[in-house]
C-alpha cells in the first residue's frame, strides 16, 4: 500500500473529475484492487484523521454501493476546499462573499439525520446538540449546509439548506418517491432549534420556516442504474461547493468513481469541467 500511495504522488490533479483514465491510472486502480481489504487508508481532512477501510474503498471502483464513511471522506475534502477558499488568507473572497456564486459550505455526516430523526421516531434535537459544537461549526457563518441521507437503507439522497436564499434544496438521484416535505421540515426545525439555542430567540425568529421555500430539483442528472446514487450524491455536493450548474452524464459517473478513489487516497480534489465546454 505504501508503494502505491507513493507512486500516486505523481497523479495530475489538474485533470477534471470526469477525464477518462489513462493507461497508467488504470494500472494503479488494478494495483489498488490487489491490496489487502483488511488495510485502512488515512484521509487527512479539516475535521481530523479519517480511517477508511480499503474494503469499502474498493466498492468505489467495483461499481458497488457506497458506504457512509466514503461519503464522509469525500465531503470532508469538499469542506476543506471550501474552507481554504474562504478562510485561509482569502480575505477578498470573504469580503465579496455575497456576490460570489461559490458558497462557503459545511457538510454533515449521514448519521446526523439518523440521530436527529432516528428510524422514523420522534425528533431528537438533544441527540445532536453537541455535534456543531464538537465540529466548531457556526451555522450562520455558512452559506450552504449539506445533509447526505440514506433512505430505506438502500438509497442515498442529498438535502441542502441554503441560508443565502432561504431555500431547502432536495437533490434526489432518482426523484419522485421520497418524503420531501417531512425531511425538509425536520431539517428546518433543527436549524431553528440550533439557532435559537446558540444565537438566541430573535435570530431564530428571523428564520421562520414559513420564509423558506422547498425546491425539489428535478432538473439534475438522475440515475438509470441500481448502484450509483451514492456517487450522484457526491457529484451533486461537489458541484454545489463550486457553485456550478449540476451537469454530468452516466459515462462521467464511471470515470468519477475512479477519480474519487484517487482523491481520497491523495486527500486532493479534481477540478470540474467548465460549464460550457
Amino acid at each position: 500500500m505504501k508503494t502505491l500511495l507513493k507512486s500516486l504522488k505523481s497523479l495530475d490533479f489538474s485533470k477534471t473529475l470526469f477525464t477518462p483514465l489513462d493507461e497508467q491510472e488504470e494500472k494503479w486502480i488494478e494495483i489498488f484492487l490487489q491490496q489487502s481489504s483488511e488495510n485502512k487508508v488515512t484521509l487527512l481532512s479539516p475535521g481530523g484523521k479519517l480511517q477508511i477501510p480499503v474494503e469499502e474503498l474498493k466498492l468505489l471502483v467495483q461499481d458497488g454501493w457506497i458506504t457512509d464513511i466514503v461519503i464522509d471522506g469525500y465531503l470532508s475534502l469538499l469542506i476543506g476546499e471550501s474552507d481554504s477558499f474562504f478562510i485561509a488568507g482569502n480575505t477578498t473572497a470573504s469580503e465579496i462573499r455575497d456576490v460570489l456564486f461559490r458558497p462557503h459550505i459545511f457538510a454533515f455526516s449521514p448519521f446526523f439525520y439518523t440521530r436527529l430523526c432516528g428510524s422514523g421516531e420522534e425528533f431528537d434535537f438533544a441527540g445532536v446538540r453537541q455535534w456543531t459544537v464538537a465540529s466548531k461549526i457556526d451555522v450562520l457563518q455558512r452559506d450552504l449546509l449539506l445533509f447526505p441521507i440514506l433512505h430505506s437503507k438502500v438509497h442515498w439522497f442529498l438535502t441542502c439548506l441554503d441560508l443565502r436564499t432561504r431555500k431547502v434544496l432536495f437533490l434526489d438521484p432518482y426523484p419522485g418517491r421520497l418524503p420531501v416535505k417531512e425531511v425538509c421540515s425536520n431539517l428546518l426545525r433543527w436549524l431553528i432549534n440550533e439557532v435559537s439555542e446558540k444565537y438566541g430567540e430573535t435570530k431564530a425568529r428571523d428564520l421562520e420556516p414559513s420564509g423558506w421555500r422547498i425546491v425539489n430539483c428535478f432538473d439534475i442528472p438522475s440515475q438509470r442504474d441500481t448502484n450509483n446514487c451514492g456517487v450522484y450524491l457526491l457529484l451533486f455536493a461537489h458541484h454545489l461547493e463550486q457553485g456550478r450548474v449540476i451537469n454530468f452524464t452516466q459515462e462521467d459517473v464511471s470515470n468519477a468513481r475512479k477519480r474519487i478513489l484517487f482523491s481520497i487516497l491523495s486527500s486532493k480534489l479534481y477540478t470540474l469541467p467548465d460549464d460550457f465546454s
Binding site: W65, I66, P110, G127, H151, C229, G230
Partner: peptide
C-alpha cells in the same frame, strides 16, 4: 478512530458514544 483513547478525545466519566449501524446505498428507491 481505532487508535483514539478516552484521553486523546478528552472524554469524561459518564460520556456517551453513539453506535450507528453502517449505512450503504446505491439502489433507486
Amino acid at each position: 478512530n481505532e487508535n483514539d483513547t478516552a484521553e486523546t478525545l478528552q472524554m469524561e466519566d459518564g460520556d456517551c458514544i453513539d453506535a450507528f449501524l453502517y449505512q450503504q446505498g446505491g439502489a433507486r428507491c
